[in-house]
Amino acid sequence: MTRADLVVIGGGQAGLATASIAVSRGLAPLVLDAQAVPGGSWPRYYDSLTLFSPARFSSLLGLPFPGDPDRYPLRDEVVDYLTSYATRLDAEVRFGQRVDRVVGSAGGFMVTTAAGGVVEAGAVVAASGGFGSPFRPPLPGLDTFAGSVLHSAQYRDPVPFAGARVVVVGGGKSAVQIAVELAGVAHVSIATRRPLRWQPQRILGRDFHWWLTRTGLDSSRLGPWLARGTVPVIDDGRYRAAVRSGRPEHRTLFERVDGEHVVWPDGARERVDAIVLATGYRSDLSYLAGTGALDAHGVPLHAGGVSTSVPGPGYVGLERQRSFASATLRGVGRDAAHVLDQFTRQPSRQARVTG
């Protein structure tokens, strides 16, 4: 059996930020990550994914993002950055260790992995984030669609869709990026329930994230309240221009799917080859089932990442957890520090990492 001061579940940006801050506070964290390689969820995102925040606003504690601070990093650059961060981290990170169960024990928590490993920990932080489980909405007729249905988590590049009729469902950043990319090779509609919302990338010559930081909204507890509803698409003008030109076209979400057709709100039926669901993700915290930490839908009961239903665990990496920037590279560190306050105010068991 292994013993540790703190077990951090998840080795992506949230887990690495948590472990780094734990080390700075004299704790010896053990990071358990289900993936075989570093980078968290980033290696599984589509090939062309580009951050909407400049490199200068996309760093974890203690390691600036390399290169031009005003550029917008690509997916693979983020993977490389997180890999470098994990290598430099003064904490043990074990990859290929999927956590299967967490239960309370006399020593704090017992953490069991799918491979049969057992870790006793004084504290646990669930840092597997809010993007572990792709969300597939219950759209009428979708389950019987004769064409191809995939979530954006399965999308990689537009090549397989050349010449096809494609509907992208969703109005967020990924939905727009994917739809615009697909429109270069296919006939594409982006379908939403509500109007698309746009946020200019630059305001008075400054990036939007500079203003968020300057005004304090980026770290304010008012951020999630102000951002209620659909999240705007941060745009330098290219995406909005593409939609205005009809490539992709924007349409109100279809009413149902019927065989190989979608039925639009005006009653028109249209044959479609593929539907891409850019409909977001849900937390994957099944390892906490039975602890009382989750509600009936598997959603953590917490306030700012601190459990409100049972003593521990803590959470880092949930969307809008404490601020507008929660679940982002620039925001997870602040949330991790807040959550770790609850542990460092308590006497440490000084278990270190042994075994």
Rank of each mutant, 00 (worst) to 15 (best):
S105W: 10
Q97A: 15
V103Q: 12
T83N: 08
R88F: 05
R98H: 12
T113V: 01
A106M: 05
R94E: 05
D100T: 00
M110V: 15
R98D: 00
F109R: 06
Q97N: 12
V93K: 12
V111Y: 01
V102Q: 09
Y85V: 03
M110S: 12
V103P: 02
G107P: 00
F109N: 03
T83V: 04
T113S: 09
L89S: 08
V99W: 10
R101A: 07
E92R: 15
R101C: 00
Q97E: 15
T87C: 04
G96L: 05
R98F: 03
V102N: 06
R88L: 15
G108K: 06
D100K: 10
A106F: 07
G107C: 02
G104C: 05
G107N: 04
R101T: 03
G104Q: 10
T112Y: 03
A106R: 15
F109S: 05
M110L: 14
L89T: 07
T87L: 13
Q97L: 04
S84E: 15
V103F: 03
T83F: 08
T113E: 00
S105F: 07
D90A: 15
Y85W: 13
R88G: 15
A86V: 09
S84G: 13
G108P: 05
G108Q: 04
V99D: 09
R88N: 11
A91C: 11
V111I: 02
G104F: 12
D90G: 08
D90L: 15
S84C: 08
R101D: 04
V93L: 09
R94M: 05
F109I: 01
A106I: 02
L89W: 07
R101M: 01
Y85N: 08
T87N: 10
V99C: 09
T83W: 10
A106N: 07
V103G: 02
S105C: 12
V111F: 01
E92D: 14
V102Y: 11
G108L: 03
T112S: 11
Y85Q: 04
V99G: 11
V102A: 09
L89H: 06
V111M: 02
T113Q: 00
V102T: 05
R101P: 00
R98N: 03
R94T: 04
F95V: 03
G104H: 12
T112G: 00
A91R: 07
D90F: 11
F109C: 03
M110K: 06
V103C: 07
G104N: 04
A91G: 12
G107R: 14
D90S: 15
F95K: 02
A91P: 09
F109E: 03
V103W: 03
Q97T: 09
R101Q: 12
D100M: 04
G96Y: 06
Q97M: 13
D100C: 01
A106P: 01
A106G: 13
S105M: 10
R98I: 00
F109H: 11
S105V: 05
S84Q: 14
V99H: 13
E92I: 13
Y85E: 04
F95P: 03
V102K: 08
F95C: 04
F95D: 02
T113N: 00
A91S: 14
V111E: 00
T112N: 02
M110N: 03
V99P: 13
Y85F: 15
A91V: 10
A86P: 07
V93G: 07
T87M: 13
T113M: 02
G107A: 14
A91Y: 11
R94N: 05
V103D: 14
F95S: 06
T87G: 11
Q97D: 08
V102I: 15
